[in-house]
């Protein structure tokens, strides 16, 4: 039975969305993974070559920054921090939020009250206040930053999922699964989850970009990584002061973020469409 389904999935591979998405995301991930080998000199300061314009020097194709560091190397090296923050924080928040949302929407009653009151408290707390409190208590570091992002963002997914579960729960196909005696676990993960994953994927792809940018403000607060370690958000923030006479300092890390998010969006759209056999959402 799975051979036929596999072949329909295969035909979906040929869609343009999928090819572009894989090329973009895969290419960026490849560069970032092997950045140490490809660009070993990311941190090398050369004050004699400050703010070189891009596309004029073969060895500094994207130009250099105010300390004479090669921007291309730094963009690629910066991806390490940015992608880790972007992917891990979102993945953590999705897993936590979706499970919480499923539980509170499906069981309602007691668990719903507990989870949703937690969520309300979470939403009432301004992010920056939460971040500062967090640093004061546990200190900075990449891991802590990802943890902070997870605990501040799972609520979005939990609310979204809970809403969908509440409307799906009373639909007849869920009731008929219950009537047959299907276990709660299977109803939650085999019937409910595939039917509500569409909007979650959309939110996920948006939040990856959001978190890559948030990382720079958190770094500014001292929560993130060592400020000398390159990251896209950090480079964007540093480049702001030079935007009038050296646009390239901030444009290239910005482009890197943009392309990553574009690739993820394409992949997300493809995933959403290929998960929906009715093809209603595809254009």
């Amino acid at each position: 039975m799975s051979t036929k389904r596999f072949s329909t999935t295969l035909s979906n591979y040929k869609s343009l969305e999928f090819i572009l998405g894989v090329l973009l995301t895969g290419g960026i991930c490849f560069l970032v993974l092997f950045s140490d080998l490809l660009f070993p000199d990311a941190d090398k300061i050369n004050l004699s070559a400050r703010l070189l314009e891009p596309f004029t020097h073969a060895e500094h194709f994207f130009g250099t920054d105010p300390l004479g560091r090669d921007i291309m190397s730094r963009v690629v090296a910066g991806g390490k921090v940015s992608l880790q923050v972007g992917f891990l924080s979102v993945a953590g928040a999705v897993v936590l939020g979706v499970i919480m949302g499923l539980i509170s929407g499906y069981y309602r009653g007691f668990w719903d009250v507990i989870v949703m009151r937690f969520a309300d408290v979470q939403l009432a707390m301004p992010f920056i206040l939460l971040a500062i409190t967090f640093i004061a208590i546990v200190g900075g570091g990449l891991g802590n930053m990802i943890f902070l992002l997870i605990i501040s963002q799972w609520v979005q997914y939990a609310r979204l999922v809970r809403g969908s579960v509440l409307s799906l729960r009373d639909r007849e196909f869920i009731q008929s699964a219950e009537a047959i005696g299907v276990s709660h676990f299977n109803i939650l993960f085999r019937h409910l989850l595939p039917n509500l994953i569409g909007p979650v994927i959309v939110l996920t792809t948006l939040n990856v970009a959001n978190n890559i940018l948030l990382e720079s403000s958190l770094t500014f607060l001292g929560l993130g990584v060592d400020p000398l370690t390159p990251s896209w958000g950090g480079m964007l923030a540093d480049g702001r002061t030079y935007i009038q006479n050296a646009w390239w300092v901030s444009v290239f890390p910005g482009l890197a973020t943009l392309l990553t998010v574009l690739g993820l969006n394409l992949l997300g759209d493809w995933l959403r469409d290929s998960l929906d056999p009715t093809g209603k959402t595809s254009r």
Binding site: R5, E172, F173, Q175, S176, P194, N195, D276, P277, T278
Partner: peptide, 10 residues
């Protein structure tokens, strides 16, 4: 409505 739209009827 009583069949899961995302599952094959098999």
């Amino acid at each position: 409505a009583s069949l899961d739209p995302r599952k094959t009827i098999g």
